[in-house]
Design a protein around this nucleic acid. Structure first.
Lengths: 219, 219
DNA sequence: GGAAATCCGTTGTATTTACAACAGAATGTG
DNA sequence: CACATTCTGTTGTAAATACAACGGATTTCC
């Protein structure tokens, strides 16, 4: 587990905690490490979760397939990000989504009870971790609101523009790389892939943007 | 402020804290009470927030109007519910939505710094409040995911069915009352009001449900 | 290097939705 | 009670989207 200390140090969860202090905390927080190959399920819809989960390495998608095989992608998780926080609380019910590895990934599970209930002495930084968690979940909350903003737009073009320009703001550049291919982007924005592809090309022809694969340039 | 103690006692934020312990905590948490008349803005898009806010009485809508006057309703807040938590963190940026009173309302503001940083002694229940807050924001998170589930459906009918059946589950009855009129429901589900009204009537004619105003019965 | 699989753009058609405009019902107000 | 306002349902048309099907480009994997 030690190999992931440099990554953990940079996570939101352990912000402000020294690398030398993290390792002792891991056992206190009941940390368990698991690895997943590309395509494997990390969590499944319907399961009950009692852990807060941190992605140490790799990339994940939070998604859902309905009855008819229509896929909806809720979000993407990159290295250092937290997930599952919202379903770790005692009465939060079953998971509504699957979480699957889109690359080979390493994942750390923390028992939520041991994270939330500050222990008596051992961890000096325990309260800080709880605060960090609060801020992290706040941020997740805001990004969900952001996504609602994208997909509540009425037209595919508006969805694309709001998503891409927000990404540009986040990545602080007009040249951006997105973590989705076309099908995944369509599943993320809740539109049809071919219609979206069509719209993208129209926008390119109108001089609004350029792209190749998952790299976009806004003009 | 004392008049709202019975309400506060039943809020998620003070769950597990005795009524007699809440009042002393209020000053410790920097609580301020404000009242709003129907139609007034409680918070405005673009503002910066450093408070966690609890609705003591009344009803609010979290919403957003774009350049062209299109309104999008993110959610509804009932008495005892918390809001603004996601924007109270230090680096969370400006509010993305307006919050307006749809009834005359009473609102309590708590300084987030004083809530999060557990004080040395005074409040025995401070850590419990922080935990409660964590669970509350988790729940908000889940309801955002739920809403994403509604509006990521492709057709108006699917949106209506997923919303109404989830409400029925929540209210634990096939007879439900929703906190929206037609226009507001359309703004919530991101569809056109008249098209939605049309679809509702079709569903009624097909025997899927009955309704009058904002009362629905699922069959 | 070559076969298989995946990804992406394109087109046409059927379906669904948005938009506008209107009328009757319900509600609120003086 | 009369009037104004809001709310809801209805209809027709224009626009946007979903869906299906296909071919070429690119990538992946033996």
């Amino acid at each position: 587990m030690k190999e992931y200390l440099p990554v953990l140090k940079r996570t939101k969860m352990f912000a402000g905690v020294g690398e030398e202090d993290i390792f002792p905390m891991l056992s206190c927080l009941g940390a368990r490490l698991r690895t997943f190959k590309k395509g494997e399920y990390v969590l499944r819809q319907g399961e009950h979760l009692s852990d807060i989960v941190v992605l140490a390495e790799g990339s994940l998608h939070i998604q859902k397939d309905d009855y008819w095989g229509n896929r909806s992608i809720l979000g993407q998780i990159g290295a250092g990000e937290i997930f599952g926080e919202a379903y770790a609380a005692p009465d939060s019910g079953a998971l509504l989504n699957d979480v699957i590895a889109v690359e080979n990934s390493a994942v750390l599970f923390f028992d939520v009870k041991r994270v939330i209930t500050t222990c008596s002495s051992a961890c000096r930084f325990h309260t800080m971790v709880v605060q960090n968690l609060f801020f992290a979940i706040s941020e997740k909350n805001r990004s969900l609101v952001q996504k609602l903003d994208y997909i509540s737009r009425r037209t595919t073009r508006e969805k694309l523009i709001s998503y891409l320009s927000e990404e540009a703001k986040k990545q602080n550049s007009a040249n951006i790389t997105i973590p989705f291919n076309r099908q995944q982007l369509a599943d993320y924005l809740s539109v049809d892939r071919s219609a979206m592809s069509n719209e993208l090309c129209k926008m390119r022809d109108e001089g609004l943007l350029k792209f190749q694969r998952n790299r976009f340039e806004l003009l």
